[in-house]
Amino acid sequence: MKLMDIIINSAEKDNLITTYCFSCNIHIWPPNRYCNSCFKKTGFRKIDRKGVLLEKSFSNLPDLIGHYGVGDFSGIRLIGSVDPSILPNDRIRISQVSVKDNKLNLEFSKSKIKN
């Protein structure tokens, strides 16, 4: 099974995972069977849902209308829809994980934890 298919199947159950290097202690995204730093085999691990919004915009494309942004979560960057009140550099959390057209569909909300 392809790594991304495993991640998508897991996301359908609200479980957000990606590959992880247990030697370097880093998440790897997009997923990879080997760590590109130490070349050791990777396993799977949950992605920390707390992060920081790096940038945001507003899409008018059909089916995607709304605010979206890119966030940094444990050193990896994910894209998802964002609450309009969230600004770049705000603390965020991944509040919803789902799958749409076999693609990852994430929602970011403002984190209750202060900076």
């Binding site: 089916d63 995607l64 894209i79």
Partner: peptide, 10 residues
């Protein structure tokens, strides 16, 4: 290939 962008893949 870059499915890491999720639904925002354009």
């Amino acid at each position: 290939w870059d499915r890491s962008r999720g639904v925002y893949d354009m």
